[in-house]
Every structure is written in structure tokens, then in C-alpha cells.
Design a protein around this nucleic acid. Structure first.
Lengths: 247, 247
DNA sequence: CGCGCCTTTGAAGGAGCTCAATTTAGGTGG
DNA sequence: CCACCTAAATTGAGCTCCTTCAAAGGCGCG
């Protein structure tokens, strides 16, 4: 099942209309009145399409806008001098990209489309301007930034104190939950990322990810066929998480 | 050398005055005009003292304010159901605590003083209000949130793709850099946290942290005496970071 | 249909963990 | 002020989980 929003596809350059977007409830416009939505429409006027493997932005590029994912999915990653890469997140529709760029007025990570995707461009200066007038927008934006911080803390927990199988279980459950929110099946989905990308995100080698998938399958928790995942025992996966490491 | 700001200590309840605080340049007031600073003074009116090991807030408590550290230092940590703890950060003077609470209107981590400390209480609703009027304040606040996200990405990199000694070297260099910014020695300082807390933050066991310290000492990079650290070869520490894992 | 990339699986090795004992420091009360 | 006591740190030995290295299999795309 594709990670695309159920919205009419429209040619590039066409006005993005938050007021008509079915992702409203999950995205920046959440909580806005009709009138306020129209003000936001004026701000979020441009959409951008990206093909698989295209970069939305790269580390070092000047920061001018944040992006709301309208369809498709992305990964973000940071690179060290020695070339080591760390995937910092996988983003899907309604999620916001580019918040890291505010601090230094330059992007500090790379954002790459994992499939053909479409984003709404939100010029940041204009967003700050409008959010000075629209209280609900201001608050929603702050919530989104804060949510990103909370999410990051979850990843730290995962990387800092979980074993390989726990990490992968947490990863699958997180995906499942986010698919549910978006109206997709929470037990069957396609992974848009490779084992290596999952491994980078989870602080594991790709072989370890692959082996953990196989072991989950052997235990009857999931069925894996390459990128296709079928969760058979969601409680079983959950149980892997809530147990002390020694069981 | 203590992690306290060089400010006159004043009895609890006394007005916090950003306009007179020597941490201005590092903290929320950065970039504000004198007039704007006075507006901020009205908002940030209360300070709070905490003794070592006291909690500023705990996970689950309602979120009402963020806090600027005026003196002392803190650790923040998240706890899993099974009791496993992950330290998500160590904060020192001028840094902001509590941003994670915005998203759900409840704190999502614990903040504990590592030494006797003092924070400025910044009621969040009022901050949002004022930042609708004061552009520079709004922007500075957004930068602070974004900086937190960037910092978290750095921790992910550390946890996801560095080995034990690299993590500890990165940790020491980060501390050193932050002490420098605050006008303290960047080669000599006291750690306010235990080996176990460092380990939790770095995704290592306390024994591993201890052994890595000893090895750094053997190599002549630092001298350690319990919590007292003296960096002897800062370039040597840096070199540990920029090398591929196999050397 | 063939090539390249991704994935799976095996076997061996090593980094960090666990368990355990000892030392040291810091705080407390006599 | 000193002795005691507890918490923190150090160090060693053995083990485990994940990595590394290697090879084979499968899928998708041109």
C-alpha cells in the first residue's frame, strides 16, 4: 500500500490549498478556523514534486522554508566528516521537514525522497509573520517542533538502551501506528527504505536487521517478503519491548 | 570550577531580570533591544532554586512553563515502562529546559538538578503572547527549539554510529566547548554527573565509561581524578573522532 | 533476459557487557 | 576532628550479542 495521501494529484506549480487538504488534521493547519485556513493558503502556495532518491535539501544549503509532506515519504540523515552516515528519521505524509535549519539559517541534514513524493513549501519568514497574528497557528507550530524533540528522545532511548530485536520491534510498531493514523492498514505495509537505511536509523548493521526480521518471522510475529511486511502478532511485538533485556 | 553563572545571588522570589543578567547573550533574550528586554523582564519574573538531586519537573506533570538555567546544571531523562532509564541530555547555564512539554501539554521527561541550581521560570502562555509582539523574541525562541533538534541529531549520530571511545571523546569535547562559551576553562573542569549517568547518556555501561577514561589517561589525552577532568591533548581527543572505526 | 542492487544466511571475531572484588571519596554522627 | 558508612569509581575475567567477512539467492529495471 503506497504512502500517498488520498488527494487529487495536480500539476506542479498549482496552488497548494491547506483548506482543501485531507491531511489538515495531522498537519500544520490543525485547529485553524476556516478564515485562518484561508490565510494559511496564501502562505503555503507552492508545491514541489520529487522523484525517488531526489533530495529536498542538503546539509549546508541556506534555510528558507519548511516543508509539509503531502504525499510520499522521506528519510533525513546527517553525515560526519569521515563519511559515516546516520539516518535521523523517516517521515511520511503530513509530517514537517526542515525544522533543523531554523537554528543556523542553514540546513543541517539531508532530506531524500524514498519514493516519488510531493511537499508543500512553507516559506519560514512568512510563517513566522502569520503566526504572530494567528494564535492557533503559532501554538500548533510550537507543538510540532516540540513533538520533534519528543520523538528524538524516543530515538535516543531506542539507540541508548535497547537491544537489536527491541529496536526493530519498536520501529515496526511505530510505523504501524503512523500508518493507522493515516488510514492505512496497520498490519500490512511496504517498507520504502532498505535494510541498510533501517540499520543506520536503529544503530545496527544491515545484516543484523535482516537476521532480526528472519527471527521475527520464525517466531510467527510477522511475515516478511523483502520490503513487504505483514504483522501477524502485534501484541507479541509489543511484548518484546516491555521486557527487561535478560528474558 | 563550578558551573554557576557569575551573577549576584539573590533570595528566592526576587525578580529575575533578563535585562541585568550576564547570560543574556547565550539565552532567550539574545538580540532583544533594551525596551524589549524590559518587556521580557515582566514575563520572566520568578526564579526557582533547587538543591542537588531535586527535580524541576517530572514526566507526566502538567506543562506550564519553560525554564532558563541561571546557575547550576541539570540532567534530563526518559524512563521506559520496564524501568530502563535513558539520560537525554545534560544542561548548563543559559540553556532552556522543558521544551518537550509543549507538544502534549505535559512534561515527557524528568529534569533533575545535578548540583544546587537556580532557574528562571518562563510561563509558556505568556511567552507565546509576548513573542507575537516581539519579532526578535519569536525568532530567538524558534532558534532555541531548532537548536535542540539539531543537538538531538548529534546525539543520534553519537549513539548510532560511534564506538565507546569516540562517544566519550565527543562528550568531553562538547563539554569543553560549552564551558569555553561560558567563560570557564576548557581544559579543566568538574563533572557534575556520575559515570552511570554519562553511560546512560552515551549508551554505555558505567564500567565502559570508566575504562575509556582510564585509557584516555594512559594515552596522555587527559588526566582524570574521579570527577575532576584535565584535558591535556585536545587535538588528540578530536583525532579520535575524525577517524574511521578501524584504526 | 541479464545485470546490479538488495537481501539472506553462515561462520568467526571482537567490542562492550556482566559479574565480582577492591579502592576511593564524600558525607554523617559521635 | 576522626571513624564510620555508603555511594561512586576502578579494574579484572569471562561471556554475549552484534559485527565483520564472505557467499549465494532473489527481485526489479533497463
Amino acid at each position: 500500500m503506497p504512502l500517498t495521501a488520498r488527494v487529487a494529484v495536480s500539476p506542479e506549480g498549482l496552488k497548494a490549498a491547506c483548506s482543501k487538504c485531507n491531511l489538515q488534521e495531522l498537519c500544520l493547519p490543525f485547529g485553524l478556523s476556516n478564515n485562518e485556513l484561508q490565510q494559511l493558503d496564501e502562505l503555503v502556495s507552492v508545491r514541489k514534486r520529487l522523484k525517488r532518491h531526489e533530495h529536498l535539501y542538503r546539509s549546508g544549503e541556506p534555510f528558507e522554508a519548511i516543508y509539509a509532506i503531502r504525499a510520499g515519504s522521506f528519510k533525513t540523515s546527517v553525515v560526519q566528516e569521515d563519511g559515516r552516515v546516520q539516518v535521523t528519521g523517516f517521515q511520511m505524509s503530513s509530517e514537517i521537514l526542515g525544522l533543523d535549519g531554523i537554528s543556523s539559517e542553514a540546513h543541517t541534514c539531508d532530506a531524500e525522497a524514498l519514493e516519488d513524493s510531493e511537499v508543500c513549501v512553507i516559506p519560514f519568514a512568512k510563517l513566522e509573520e502569520l503566526s504572530r497574528e494567528v494564535v492557533t497557528l503559532q501554538h500548533q507550530f510550537h507543538k510540532i517542533m516540540s513533538r520533534e524533540i519528543v520523538r528524538d528522545h524516543g530515538v535516543m532511548m531506542l539507540l541508548g538502551s535497547m537491544r537489536a530485536e527491541e529496536r526493530l520491534a519498536a520501529f515496526l510498531l511505530n510505523l504501524s501506528q503512523r500508518f493507522t493514523t493515516r488510514g492505512f492498514s496497520h498490519t500490512e505495509f511496504h517498507l520504502r527504505m532498505t535494510r541498510e537505511e533501517i540499520g543506520s536509523y536503529l544503530g545496527l548493521k544491515l545484516e543484523t536487521v535482516s537476521r532480526a526480521f528472519s527471527r521475527f518471522q520464525d517466531k510467527g510475529l510477522i511475515s516478511v517478503q523483502q520490503k513487504h511486511i505483514h504483522i501477524l502478532d502485534i501484541d507479541g511485538l509489543q511484548a518484546l519491548l516491555s521486557q527487561p533485556p535478560s528474558i
